[in-house]
Every structure is written in structure tokens, then in C-alpha cells.
Design a protein around this nucleic acid. Structure first.
Length: 219
DNA sequence: GCGACAG
DNA sequence: ATCTTGTCGC
């Protein structure tokens, strides 16, 4: 058998992200009244990615549906290339949903990425659905001390790429545009969905993925 | 070359 | 992300 050359290089992947970033919509393209909010998260067991997608009613944040999907990971974790690792299993569990939410909250960056195409944006463009990036730590950009608000802009070389939002608990969340939404609306939605240290959609997706993980690890 | 670096 | 028990705090 001839040697199969790697189907990618970090450089090519970055160029692909640069191309993908051109399709990102920074304006609100979601229903005036949001009915359902979605959340996705991924857990791991060895070389298997276990993703979970959940749907909550926007008004009361009650869980109405949850799905899971697993895939062998074909990509290592490389900062800036997270989407290539989590996209397969994430897309799979989203396709199982009977109720398609109006928007998805994704754990990871949106455009707050070196090539303006983090996991949340990549997922949004592929789905053609609104997404918001909600990360627990920063990838790129800097913030200045919090002013008299609960958030401060995240800037990458003077360009606003997102915001650092302080939750009621005191935790800092990095919010950025994923796709089909404005930063202003994204901040409002994340605020609305956050009761503890993390938005409910992501917290529940994380919980569901973790539950599924132990089923696989401890039969 | 050095440091930073989502999950 | 994951490896891990009890423990300090709101």
C-alpha cells in the first residue's frame, strides 16, 4: 500500500478557517421571539468523543429534549483547531433532535479566534443556524478591567471579537458571535440563560454527555 | 527563538 | 478534556 499523506496540515486547516470565516453573519437572523434554545457539549473516553445536544424552552429554561452521539476522534486537540475534533460527533447528535432550537449555545469560541472561526462559528456555518460561542477561558484577545457593567469587550488588536461576561456567581465567560447573531444579542441571551456559573443549555449538555460517558466506561 | 494556547 | 475524595464556602 502506498503511503497515505496526511489529509491536512495545520496551515491548510487555518486557511480553511479563514475561508469559512467569510460566510459568518454578524447580524441577528433569528426569530423575534425565541422559543427554544439549544446547547451542545462533548465528553471523552479514550479516543471516543461523546457529544450531547439539548433543547430548552427559552422562557423557563426547562429541558425538553436531549440526544447523544459518539464518534472515534480522528483529530488531536490542537489549540485553534478544536472544531475539527468535535464537529463530527456534535453534528451527529444535533441531527437526532426532533425539536430544532432557534439558536445553539456552544462551548468554545465563536469569532474570538485567531482566524475568526472558532468551533461555534464553524458549527453555525455548517448548520446554517444561529450560534453563540461561550468559552470558560480565552483563546485570543485581551480584556480591560470590568467597568460598571457585567461585561467588558474582548479585543484582539483593537478589534472587538467578543466580550467577557461576569456571571452572578462571579465567574467570567467569554462570549462571542458564532453565526447569524450580533454580539449585543448574544450577550443578552447568555445572560438570560445563566443562573449559576454556566449557561443552562451548556450545563445540561455537559451533564448529559458525562452521564453517557460512564455508561460506556463502566458497563 | 519564546510564550500563549477554546476543549 | 481527563485523572480523583473529601472538603470549604455560599
Amino acid at each position: 500500500m502506498p503511503n497515505l499523506k496526511p489529509v491536512f496540515s495545520i496551515e491548510k486547516a487555518h486557511k480553511a478557517q479563514l475561508q469559512l470565516s467569510k460566510f459568518i453573519v454578524f447580524e441577528d437572523r433569528l426569530p423575534k421571539n425565541i422559543h427554544f434554545v439549544g446547547g451542545v457539549d462533548t465528553a471523552y473516553f479514550k479516543d471516543v468523543a461523546i457529544s450531547a445536544s439539548v433543547v430548552l424552552e427559552f422562557n423557563n429554561l426547562n429541558l425538553v429534549e436531549a440526544q447523544v452521539a459518539t464518534r472515534k476522534v480522528a483529530f488531536p486537540y490542537i489549540p485553534t483547531l478544536l472544531s475539527f475534533r468535535e464537529l463530527p460527533s456534535t453534528l451527529a447528535c444535533i441531527k437526532k433532535l426532533k425539536i430544532m432550537p432557534d439558536i445553539f449555545l456552544v462551548d468554545g469560541q465563536g469569532i474570538a479566534h485567531p482566524y475568526r472561526c472558532g468551533f461555534a462559528s464553524h458549527l453555525g456555518v455548517v448548520l446554517g443556524k444561529p450560534t453563540i460561542g461561550v468559552a470558560k477561558s480565552r483563546l485570543t484577545g485581551d480584556i480591560e478591567p470590568f467597568p460598571n457593567r457585567d461585561f467588558t469587550y474582548l479585543k484582539d488588536n483593537n478589534e472587538v471579537v467578543g466580550a467577557a461576561l461576569r456571571t452572578p456567581t462571579g465567574k467570567t465567560l467569554y462570549v462571542s458571535v458564532g453565526h447569524m447573531i450580533s454580539l449585543e444579542t448574544a450577550i443578552k441571551i447568555v445572560r438570560h440563560c445563566t443562573r449559576g456559573s454556566i449557561p443552562e443549555p451548556i450545563r445540561l449538555a455537559h451533564k448529559r454527555a458525562t452521564t453517557e460517558r460512564r455508561k460506556i466506561s463502566k458497563p
